[in-house]
Design a protein around this nucleic acid. Sequence first.
DNA 1: CCGAAGTGTCTTGATATCAAGAGTCTTGAC
DNA 2: GTCAAGACTCTTGATATCAAGACACTTCGG
Lengths: 197, 197
Amino acid sequence: MEESTSGPMPASHDDGPRGAGPGAAEPVTAEFDVTPHDEVDRIVAAWLQERPDLDLEPLTVFSRISRLARHLDLARRRAFARRDLETWEFDVLSALRRAGEPYRLSPGALVQQTLVTSGTMTNRIDRLTGRGFVERHRSPDDRRGVQVELTPAGLKQVDAAMADLLAVEAQVLGALDKDHRPLLAGLLRTLSTQFEK
Amino acid sequence: MEESTSGPMPASHDDGPRGAGPGAAEPVTAEFDVTPHDEVDRIVAAWLQERPDLDLEPLTVFSRISRLARHLDLARRRAFARRDLETWEFDVLSALRRAGEPYRLSPGALVQQTLVTSGTMTNRIDRLTGRGFVERHRSPDDRRGVQVELTPAGLKQVDAAMADLLAVEAQVLGALDKDHRPLLAGLLRTLSTQFEK
DNA sequence: CCGAAGTGTCTTGATATCAAGAGTCTTGAC
DNA sequence: GTCAAGACTCTTGATATCAAGACACTTCGG
């Protein structure tokens, strides 16, 4: 699931957020452009060369989102690795953590929140149980049911990991002007509501 | 479980819910009559309840990026499925396509661009060869090497799939005001250069 | 009550992926 | 010229995931 490139491509298809207003008759300087280019600029430039008839605007947004998600995934993996925690482990533990006391959810609820199948969740709960981060309890009122509960060790782990995660992400976010952050969040929300309703 | 717009949180990072906001009467655009909430708003609200001491601003951006990427992946999968094409197949074919004539790359180059391992790429090339979308050719000047080349059938497939993909993505992007799109793309680029530098 | 349908969890079999290493071939130092 | 080191591709073994179905229990209609 990726659209990445490190290929050698002339890159100067760009309309960065800098400078003055839109529509400015700006000469594109290929050598020393102040706007930094990224891989997506190169991918779009390559497509433009091959298919000048296409409207590639969607790529400038969605390819970046996909690639950023991939990089984020790697960054998270690195951050969690220092605590010997895998990303999927954090996903499960954090769902339990933010559920609040007594930090209990059914496997079904965890499936919904983490977007994996029930078989995968069974496997994950098994391994988290083995590490002592969660425990299975029989549901009191439904004997089919199970409640997965965070142990004190799991609570400690997930709180520490969350702090690490926020620290790493805050550093990346630091590249953005403080005023621009809520703006970006708002634009992304507009897109996400497209999918969630 | 609604988001606390009235709570003591730092303005919830909305871009002005137009009227209902805390005095912020910024007439940006009249497109938000009611501020739509998404899953990330709920996740952030849950965390805020549990850990009011944390600065959760990074989540408002990065959790949305991750979740959007997931949704995009599913949308792409659906779009490609109509042509009996898998996402990973498109990733390989599109790398060859935008390389330009004669649509040839080495397996190593494809590995770099798609961020998978060489073993995975071998497997993918095998299957794409089986479907008649690519062919293996011996490299003329390096007898270790192989060149993977798009067949006419592969070219046709990838061009059709690209058109479908852009159509689907354009529809989602339609939720965004036309002026906001380059703005969003620019903000995302600022973040992605953080990772790619 | 009883049986059918529904719900929640776990098991099974198949698949794609990765990490590590093997097999070729090329390059460069001497 | 020769040998060691490197480069490129493919193979192997282990693993996590998914789809589909099995199993246990609950709920609901008659």
